[in-house]
Design a protein around this nucleic acid. Structure first.
Lengths: 252, 252
DNA sequence: GCGCGACGGTGTTCTAGAACACCAAGGGGT
DNA sequence: ACCCCTTGGTGTTCTAGAACACCGTCGCGC
């Protein structure tokens, strides 16, 4: 979430200020709906100019942590809520461009220790070993999305024997292990690209992007793979073609 | 797209500057990938301070029209490309919250003249009459999305006889006209809320939001309804549950 | 031939202050 | 009772300039 890793170690003042305010909000010192002190006083209390303070607020507003209202004040935003969208399928990572050449490049495969998010999602203990697959989707040779897939080590060891540069992952899972993905859970959010992802996607560090995190489950309900996909927000608009073979509880 | 309608008619300098640059880009005077003049010179040429110019660039960067690179320059971004996402279904407007109460409020129905986008989408002549349905989706009583549906007048006149406050639109279409939506095309983008939408959704004017525009087609391929849905970007994250009854050409 | 450090160009952060725009509420006039 | 308009508080826009950080490249030294 922090986004900008500085090479020089020097963090702009307004980032630090934003960090402090962020903490006050998360710690509950400032409750949702509460009004912050006014900008001039805040600026003075941080020993900084109004303009500088405003840059900090700008950051927080973009993160939807606060909401500024001309003539009224600055307020802590309502907490985030997750909403389900009915009947949505494969959002990211599985893209098809109109008429253009879509290719997948296997950037790398390695075994590593799972971080919290990954091991939670896969139902593994903390620090479990996982196979990490990094793939780049290219459209017309231009990078379009970066997909990192994490598989539990036992599954990974079998899968990695396949020629993953040529074989789609789901195919390798099916052929080698008889695993068919039956359901999945995905979370889509907007993030800023870190240095490493930005480099792969040839974007600026900190560029806005969609991040899709997906856990896929096999028939028995066992988690098979955790995917994290980044799609730079620039130069992309999303259009979709929908076909309703059977439209169930539609509220439209 | 302009976003902020000023009551006072006074438009901030940096908005005007952004507008000028926007035009230069759209007119092709500045081609994608081209480097803009440097900030100091641009500022001078607009007779404005560096800080002010930067605010204009900030706007353009958020619109993904330009890309600033520290130490390198400011560049015109690559043109937007539409990408299809395979197998995606009902994104917006058809939402389901975990455990919370989802209700729909019919805000209003009226006949009006279609704007360009609407008449194009529905394959009508310019300035054709359409029925406009405005509905608000509420979660736990809090507004979550605003949906405006546009139907060609002939269809609208039939549909409007139903008790739309209680009957889902797709139901009215099926019962009264035998129309079943078979396919649709949807475009999702990020926009800033205009005054009217913001008011309905009780957000700030200019707040960031998803905008989903969808054309739905009946079995014969005739366009039936054009939907435009706004979902404020704040306090929402999207999670999805997927079930693959038959997974076809998956590239994963 | 190769590495590395200085340099020029470019974006970024920050100051100190002034003037303006927006909003809610209170006070006065009708 | 009602409406308007003034007033105080708050966010917003803008100035003029200084110092800093990042990037590619060129040239020096090995």
């Amino acid at each position: 979430m922090n986004g900008s890793v500085r090479v020089n170690g020097r963090v702009p003042r307004y980032h630090r200020i934003a960090e402090v305010l962020r903490e006050r909000i998360h710690e509950g010192e400032l409750r949702p709906g509460a009004r912050l002190d006014n900008q001039r006083r805040l600026a003075k209390s941080f020993g900084v100019t109004l303009m500088t303070l405003r840059q900090a607020l700008e950051l927080l507003e973009r993160e939807h942590l606060i909401s500024r209202r001309h003539g009224l004040g600055t307020f802590v935003a309502a907490p985030s809520i997750d909403y389900d969208i009915l009947q949505l399928r494969r959002f990211a990572g599985d893209l098809q461009a109109k008429g253009e050449q879509v290719t997948t490049r296997l950037v790398g495969t390695k075994f590593a220790l799972a971080d919290h998010r990954v091991s939670d999602a896969l139902g593994l203990g903390p620090g479990a070993r996982v196979l990490v697959l990094e793939r780049l989707r290219l459209v017309d040779g231009h990078p379009m999305s970066l997909q990192r897939s994490f598989l539990p080590a036992p599954i990974g060891e079998e899968v990695v024997r396949a020629d993953l540069a040529r074989t789609p992952l789901h195919r390798a899972l099916e052929v080698r292990l008889g695993l068919v993905v039956e359901s999945a859970r995905e979370t889509v959010s907007a993030v800023r690209l870190e240095r490493s992802e930005a480099r792969e996607l040839s974007c600026r560090t900190g560029a806005p992007a969609f991040e899709s995190e997906r856990v896929s489950y096999a028939a028995g309900g066992a988690p098979v793979v955790f995917d994290r996909v980044f799609i730079p927000g620039d130069r992309f608009r999303i259009t979709r073609e929908l076909h309703y073979e059977s439209l169930q509880g539609a509220t439209s």
